[in-house]
Write a protein that binds this DNA or RNA. Sequence first.
RNA 1: GCCCAUGUGGCGGAAUUGGUAGACGCAGCAGACUCAAAAUCUGCCGUUCGCAAGGGCGUGAAGGUUCGAUUCCUUUCGUGGGCACCA
Length: 912
Amino acid sequence: MEYDFKKIEAKCQQQWEEKEIYKVSNLSDKPKYYVLDMFPYPSGAGLHVGHPLGYIASDIYSRYKRLKGFNVLHPMGFDSFGLPAEQYAIETGQHPATTTQHNIATFKAQLNKIGFCYDWSREVRTSNPSYYKWTQWIFLQLYESYFCNTQQKARPIADLIKKYETKGCSKFTAAEWNAFSKKEQEDILMKRRLAFSAYGEVNWCEALGTVLANDEVINGVSERGGHPVEKKKMRQWYLRITAYADRLLQGLDTVNFSDAMKEMQRNWIGKSEGAEMDFHIKDRQETIKVYTTRPDTIFGVDFLVLAPEHSLVSHITTHAQRQSIDEYLHYVKSRSDRERMAEVKQITGCFTGAYALNPFDGKQIPIWIAEYVLSGYGTGAIMAVPCGDQRDFSFARHFNITITNIIGSHYNGQEANATKDAVLENSGFLNGLIMKDAIAVAINKIEEMGIGRRKVNYRMRDAGFSRQRYWGEPFPIIWSDGIALPLDAKELPLELPFVEKYGPGPEGEGPLANIPEWTAKHLETSTMPGYAGSSWYFLRYMDPHNAETFCDRKASDYWNQVDVYIGGTEHAVGHLLYSRMWTKLLYDLNLIGFDEPFKKLVNQGMITGKSFFFQVDEKGSIISYQKENSSAAEFIRFKYGHQFVDANGILRKSVVDKNGLQLPKSIKWNKDEEGEYVVTKEEAEKMSKSKFNVDNPDDIVDKYGADTFRMYEMFLGPVEMSKPWDTKGIEGVHRFLRKLWRLFFDEIKGKLWNQDAASAEELKVLHKTIKKIDSDTENFSFNTAVSAFMIAVNELADLKCHKKEILENILILLAPFAPHIAEELWQQLANEGSILNATYPGYNEKYLIEATKEYPISINGKMRTTISMATDAAQPEVEKQVLQNEIVQKWLEGKQPKKIIFVKGKMVNVVI
RNA sequence: GCCCAUGUGGCGGAAUUGGUAGACGCAGCAGACUCAAAAUCUGCCGUUCGCAAGGGCGUGAAGGUUCGAUUCCUUUCGUGGGCACCA
């Protein structure tokens, strides 16, 4: 009998489906385990070989936990709202709902071929009204809540209203509150709501009449069409995630994420401690509030810099500087935040003509504006200390501003020195203090003088939560005289209406603004962003069909946190912070019983695709790629090049002719004995449809089977690492499965297995393998597990072992990795039931004990020979044996060793 | 620019806490079986000097700590990812 993977895989998948073997119950006396994948966005390109990497890992882990006796929840769904579907709709006129449904069907078919153990009865789709009903409902909870600073948690806004009505607050009395108009009251409340509306800047493209994602803006112009893009203020919705900044930071200590991941989130939140301080402006009433983490450097301030968007800019600009400032503001409008931060070498700025006064010594300080100061961070104004900050230094140099040195010899005049250890000079009352001690002294003085205060600042900003788009959740909000009125929960879902046109509405509003029935009801015309639905989907899987609530409390209490969450690092900050915040909100409102969604996070690396590029010469012809002078050369993408270029990056003319390829340019062929060719440039890039470098898993599954595909993706390398896709090694994995098969079947003799008792040697192979596979699987080290399987099968083949006692345990170990072949052989061995419900074998240390060890012997740290010695030998005995050794004596040349280092069970080092 | 990750044979990668660098697999070379091919099996396979025995050099680069460094520290270069409206 041969290994006919096609037949086996089809048969097993059918059996499993018939028996509903992946169906998971919320009622079980087994301990629960929740393994979750980041659900995919179902793009039109279908699944590529990069997608399944994490899915295979989580599938292996889920099956492993099941064999270990857990009730495992391992669901899958689709993040099906988003921009690409809408873009596709604009281009082709097909409704996003149609294309999305089609794409999901493709994805599911592809996923099923790989043999994942999803319980599809729990599938969620964020674009289904039955799902986004609850996304809208949670939005209403956010809208109806505020963050209580005393209790550090969300509370119903009704509590706040009651407080205002009865006690007032520091800004107004209860009587004043009650006298406010409805609009005034709502405006005040809006400043506290966790979902709130305010004005914010967006990338506005006049020519396209729409708002663009940062992604769609390249070098200040739109990606499509290359039209100019500028900043525009528009009413937006936001989530007050900054309120949760501290809890998001603290929560990191309670979860098992990688240090790198925690670091990224901490940096994103960007908590810093410092002071806010007011500077008086010469001859004017206004003051400029700056935020600084280094109040100790106050006497080194040589100028102030305002963000160009700062509200005071137009007030303080002098007549003489007016024109220059206007020109500069015009220039800045075309620049993205990213460009403003990235291009630090290009120093730009403009003097306003105004001066501020140093609050301590009254020194006049010129006020500039510059794009390197961002309006969204701190107060949008900084005090520049050129001797201590490199950007300030470069700026001062560039514009010939005098630099005050307050750190003596620590400043060399060539570059800034951000030290905190210098002793302050030229610093008034701070003279003689070490900088890090002076910080507190300075803040105390500032507070004492009433010109500022201690301030904790966050880099994180509130999250923009509206999009001027169609394919997203509509906001359950009606506008009435500038007041946002929430819909009643009973009216949900507020369904997305059908539209004819997906183009933008008037004034950059979303497509919903084009629908008279929508605008007649004064409904909000923007929609929620992609991350809305994905911020809470892990809860819906627990209770996916509940029409009464987003997730029954019993279900969320049983499944609780996601035990392992697997996904890419590209979601490190965005999605993970948002879902952590939503979880905290639901927890605060006592709707769920935990305030961190993900107990453990595993980041899978990306499988990069291979892209190929043609080098083009001055005349516009394709030439062979040359490493030299290629930096200045021009390259054009060779679409789908990975399908035609050989392992050395060579494209043959014969291949071009055979496949009827149309090349974008004329080509100058090189010639060798095999014919005409051209060398292309290879680059590893993210796999994506737009890069034309996508490989499809279906082809691999058809050719080698799902089991081979699964094991090969794992064998490529550690799950967390990025790696280029290459099918070179897949034969090896396939050969391994065939070799395993041959332990059970022989083409001539047929069944090979027997009931004989296993030998000590065979038991040693088995138990060594159990130990290794068990710990590697537990640690997500799947690549080394695959190699351990290969070693085990090689050794059992060498031992000609066909004993059921050994083989059936190997099958259980293998079942998570290659479920189909394991199931088939399990049944062939005449075992009862499915292998999916087998019990994971334990290993017994007694089979692994060795009496002797082959010790490596080093001379001065270099390995020279090995000596076999008893495992329990002590140092004196070891030294004796080592010194008797011929090779050691040769290196000693008759001398006595200075020292002999012996590490039991490890090695011996003779130091001469 | 900032933040994070990463760099080991021709290739993917392995190496529990600092202790035999290159497991396992691919590719390659030589051989067995075969009329032949496929499949399968056996051996070799970092580099360099050497007939060999045996040695030198080797984990991006340069330093350092240590009896001993792929692993720890400092500096530096390359590559990939993220940077708030792609998801």
